[in-house]
Computed example of a mutant assay.
Amino acid sequence: MTLRVNGKVVTPTGVIRQGCVEVRGDRITAVAEYPSIRDGHWIVPGFVDIHTHGGGGHTFTTGDAESARAAAAYHLNHGTTSLLASLVSAPFELMRSATTAFAPLVRQDVLAGIHFEGPYLSAARCGAQNPEFLRDPSIDELTELLKLGEGTVRMVTLAPELTGAIEAIGLLTGQGVVAAVGHTDATYEQTCAAVAAGASVGTHLFNGMRPVHHRDPGPAVALLTAPNVFCELVADGVHLHEGTLTFAVATAGPERCALVTDAMAAAGMPDGEYELGGQAVTVADGQARLADGTIAGSTLTMDAALRHAVAVGMPVPDAVRMVSTTPALAVGLGDRVGALTAGLRADLVVLDDELNVVRVMRAGEWVR
């Protein structure tokens, strides 16, 4: 049986104003123009969040499988049909147990992969990462995690200036794992060396990084100007000034800028007290911070990130690319999801004119 979803269809090449997405089973079979259609809803590909720590009161950071299922379900209702479960800096035993717990969820397609944000990060730029657990990259640890994950570890964020980082990047990329640069005090030159070694993602660009200076451009400039690097951006109006957000997109283009949530368990929850990586987090007015004021993730969802990008002046097709197509490509999922293209999994989001979620389809099934 063929299912047809009608509206203003956002494709990789533009908008079909009177369009239709045809779905059979869990696949998109056709995307076409149908002049008789008058439904005004936006039809966009399911969102792909490559950096999220939790949501709806549930977290990925403890390595609990049921909590991970619930967090993924929360974000699914906001249009995120594919996400990586992002861990924070932790003891190696927790990294091992989380990999063991989450690998079956990846194989069951609940998660799109595992992302280790740390513990191989700079103490000087650790942000809300727990400094107690920071350490230099360990080839032995990474080798064991990759073996345990059996292909489910998809990305690792590290600081390239640390001892052993370049070797670690080589190991990761040699095993098909994305190496990301983040929480780093690296110089421009050290960052370029990491890119040359195979690093291909900048983790929440500008945040947790040596700041830009005209005589010391640092990692952000190196990552923005590297043609083979995808740059994560947290578009919540807190992590980045709108001028910084639009500058980054103007520099790297929507083809290399991936909007992410960096959400923690407090996303979708009331203000109050929460925890992240063993540290107390206070959420007030929707902003998550440590006691010293350091930003501690976000309470963002991908649909809200899309709306924010459009509100600061980005065309809808560009914003959609940054929440779906670009992040999918960044972590090697572009041949499965991230676009309304025949042959890909039937993941789509129906949005009203204010870009609020009306319905979500995942693998050809409407989400209840």
Results as ranks from 00 to 15, higher is better:
F133N: 09
G40M: 03
P219Q: 07
R27M: 11
R154L: 01
G243H: 13
L84H: 10
G338M: 02
V88E: 04
R307V: 05
A235N: 08
D236F: 07
R336Q: 11
D64G: 02
H213V: 00
M95H: 13
V5I: 14
H308L: 07
P104N: 10
A235F: 00
G334Y: 04
Y34T: 09
N356Q: 11
P131C: 15
G149I: 06
S67A: 12
V221A: 12
L290P: 10
G332D: 09
T81K: 02
G253R: 03
K8V: 13
G118D: 04
A252Q: 00
P317M: 13
E33N: 01
P254G: 11
V310C: 11
G170F: 08
M361A: 04
A70E: 15
V10A: 11
V195E: 07
L83M: 14
T326L: 09
I295V: 10
G63S: 12
A73L: 07
V10D: 00
V283R: 05
R336F: 01
H51V: 04
G149V: 06
E161F: 05
H183W: 02
T13M: 12
C126W: 04
V358M: 14
V331A: 01
M1F: 12
S138Q: 14
E144N: 10
R321T: 14
G297N: 01
R359L: 04
C126I: 05
V201D: 02
K147D: 14
V281A: 09
V195Y: 04
G272Y: 05
R345A: 11
I50A: 01
A101I: 09
L105R: 02
Q190I: 08
F133T: 00
P211N: 14
T143L: 13
V357S: 01
D140K: 13
V177W: 14
T152I: 09
A284I: 15
I295G: 04
V221C: 10
R38M: 14
P227W: 13
R307W: 12
H51D: 10
G277N: 00
G46F: 02
G272C: 11
Y120S: 00
T100C: 09
G176M: 05
S138E: 15
V21N: 06
A296R: 00
S324R: 04
G14S: 07
V320M: 04
F92P: 06
D136K: 06
G174T: 06
G7A: 02
M302T: 07
T225Q: 12
D271W: 12
M264W: 02
G25P: 03
T184Q: 00
D39W: 01
A193R: 13
L158Y: 02
V5R: 00
A72V: 03
T173P: 15
G268N: 10
A235P: 00
S122Y: 12
G19P: 07
Q175F: 07
N228I: 03
A72K: 00
D347G: 06
H183Y: 01
N356P: 00
T163I: 08
